[in-house]
Structure formats: C-alpha cells, structure tokens
Simulated assay, not measured.
Amino acid sequence: MFRKDYLLRMMEEMTEAIGKVFTLKQQRKHTEALSELDELLRRQFGLNLSLLNSLPAEDVIEMFRFRGVIEVDNLQQAARLIEEEAYIYNEKAKVEGIDDQEKIESENEALIRLMRSLHFYLYALNNGANPKLLDAPDRVEGILKQTKQYELPARTEKQLALYREQQGRYDQAENSWYRLLQVDDSHPIQYRGEVQAFYERLRQLEDEQLQQGGLPREEVEEGLAELNR
C-alpha cells in the first residue's frame, strides 16, 4: 500500500509539472521549461537531466537499483521526463528567427533524448514495469514512429527485439534481431547466441501462437537453419 501511494504521489507531481512545462512551451519559455523538468527530477530522484543524458544508459539504469532490484517504475518516469525534454528541443527548433545551425543542434538534441527515452521505456517494460502507469506502450510506439528514419543504437534494438517477443509480435522481433546481426558484419557472433535462443524459445510454442505472431513454424526453422549456416 505504501509503495502504491508513493508512486501515485510521484505521478501527481509529474503530471502537474508537465502541465507547467506545456504552458511554458506555448509561451516559448524553453529555458524555464527545461528548468521545471530538471527541478522535478532533482526532487524525485536526486538526479538531473544533464547526468541522465551524459552517462552511459547502463550506468543510468544502475542508478535506479535499490536493494539489488532495478526500480523500473521509477525508471519509466525518468524516461517520461527525458521524452518531454526532447519535445522542448523540438519546439526550440521551430522558433522563427533562429539560424540554421541552432535549428540543427536543437533537432539533434531532441533526437538524442528521444532515443534515450525509448531505451529506458523498453528496458522498464521488459523488466516488469506497470504498462498502465504512464501508458508506456503507447509512448514507445509514438517514439518509434518519430524516429523510424533513423537506426536505433544496438542496445536499444536488442531491447526492442525482446519487447516485440513479449508482445507476441515474433516477426518484428526477428527483424530487430537480424538488424543487430548486421550492425557489424565482422562481429555477428556478438548476437548470434541470443538470436539462436530466440528461435529456440519460439520452437516451444504452438503453431497457432506462431501464426498469430506473424512467424509460422517453417519460417522459424528456416531462420534457425540460416543462422547456423
């Protein structure tokens, strides 16, 4: 009960802060909007946006470990703040009168933050986060739509593969795994064992499940044979 009340209070505070950020964005007060997000992050987690965006993603995730367990619901809240930060930079890029260089820099900052936010959402969902807390599945699909023209970082592509498998979208999971195999043609063995494990898990499923997931059994066997070749 205490844990639930704690999360609800944090969610209420986040909702209020994001409402303020939305108003500040409309007023084109981008610096103030970023400060509002940063202050919320400090109050809730004792962190700041600069730290979340500069450290390796794996190190940030470890910062949410408590008593040996990653607090994934807290992690997805941090992901939401980083996502909102990305939208502030997108708004900055649309301001009339800024030069091309500043526009490009703002767009790049937005993309970097969207990618990082996506990684944290996926990691949280893959490790038991409450999907209804922040409508994280919808947020994931929204970010994927916005970034579809870009190649995902390998670590994020792996989380996406695991997430699609969890969803039962086996054909899309396979696509992610094969993109990983092609990240570095000289070192495909880095992911080969995980792709093989993926196919072996699918072999344990019923034919109907595989059909519904877009990857019939014959395609599973073909994929495994091709991998072994």
Rank of each mutant, 00 (worst) to 15 (best):
K4D: 14
Y6W: 14
L8H: 08
R9T: 15
M10D: 10
M14I: 13
K20S: 05
V21A: 04
T31D: 14
T31Q: 11
E32T: 07
E32D: 10
E32C: 04
E36G: 08
D38G: 02
R42V: 04
L47S: 03
N48L: 01
N48D: 11
L49V: 08
S50Y: 11
S54L: 10
E58W: 13
V60S: 05
I61S: 01
M63F: 14
F64Y: 03
F66Y: 15
V69L: 09
N74P: 05
A78E: 01
A79Y: 02
R80D: 03
E84Q: 07
A86I: 04
Y87D: 07
Y89G: 03
Y89E: 03
E91L: 04
K92R: 09
K92V: 13
A93I: 03
K94H: 06
K94Q: 12
K94P: 12
V95D: 10
V95A: 07
G97W: 00
I98L: 01
I98A: 00
D99I: 03
D100P: 07
Q101L: 12
K103D: 06
E105A: 13
S106Y: 05
E107I: 12
A110R: 01
L111M: 11
I112K: 13
L114C: 03
R116H: 02
Y121H: 00
Y121A: 00
L122I: 07
A124M: 06
A129Y: 08
N130L: 06
N130W: 03
K132P: 02
A136W: 05
R139H: 11
E141W: 11
L144C: 05
K145W: 08
Q146R: 10
T147N: 02
T147P: 01
Y150S: 05
E151F: 09
E151K: 15
T156M: 01
E157Q: 15
Q159I: 02
Q159T: 06
Q167M: 10
Y170T: 01
E174L: 14
N175C: 11
S176L: 01
Y178L: 14
L180T: 05
L180H: 07
V183A: 12
D184L: 07
D185H: 13
S186W: 14
H187Q: 14
H187N: 09
R192F: 14
Y199F: 11
R201S: 02
L202G: 06
L202C: 08
R203Q: 08
R203T: 06
L205N: 06
D207L: 10
Q211P: 06
L215N: 00
R217V: 02
R217H: 07
E218T: 05
E221R: 13
L224G: 10
A225D: 15
E226N: 05
E226P: 09
L227T: 01
L227K: 01
